[in-house]
């Protein structure tokens, strides 16, 4: 199983905070593959998958953003009814706690599910046993 490096960025709840982060990435010539935002009433956390996490992290730090790198698992599933359900059901049945997840459209008519697990090692064993396709 492989993992991806997701970058989490702290966003103050003010106009332009997200735009500023995106701009910093664009300037560094980094492409955004997926973006998910978790928000509270007055701050947000942007979770980013990029084509070059190291460069992205450097660019965001230079632009004075607080950034944290987190290993996440990206599973590619056929973009057909029941494709995602199968992955989630299997993981839940084996007791893998999911802290959060989000999805994006991948290549070759596949959807990509991104997971942050409570226990990465335990999830890795289940994923390997189930022959799920991971990106990384």
């Amino acid at each position: 199983m492989t993992t991806l490096t997701q970058l989490s960025v702290f966003l103050e709840n003010k106009v332009g905070a997200l735009a500023g982060a995106c701009e910093a990435l664009a300037k560094a010539d980094v492409s955004l593959v997926a973006l998910s935002i978790a928000a509270s009433s007055d701050f947000g956390i942007a979770r980013l998958i990029t084509d070059d996490p190291a460069k992205a992290q450097e660019a965001l730090r230079t632009a004075k953003f607080v950034v944290q790198a987190t290993p996440v698992v990206a599973i590619a599933v056929p973009d057909v009814p029941g494709g995602m359900a199968k992955v989630v059901t299997t993981l839940s049945a084996k007791g893998c706690g999911i802290e959060y997840s989000y999805a994006y459209a991948g290549k070759d008519a596949k959807a990509v599910l991104v997971f942050k697990f409570d226990d990465l090692e335990k999830a890795a064993a289940v994923i390997t046993d189930s022959n799920f396709e991971t990106l990384g």
């Binding site: 989490s8 702290f10 928000a39 701050f43 956390i45 607080v66 950034v67 944290q68 802290e99 959060y100």
Partner: peptide
């Protein structure tokens, strides 16, 4: 101010 060391990607922890 939050600190760079304690920033967490979990909304719950920040809350």
């Amino acid at each position: 101010e939050v600190t760079a060391e304690t920033f967490s990607d979990s909304v719950e922890k920040m809350e």
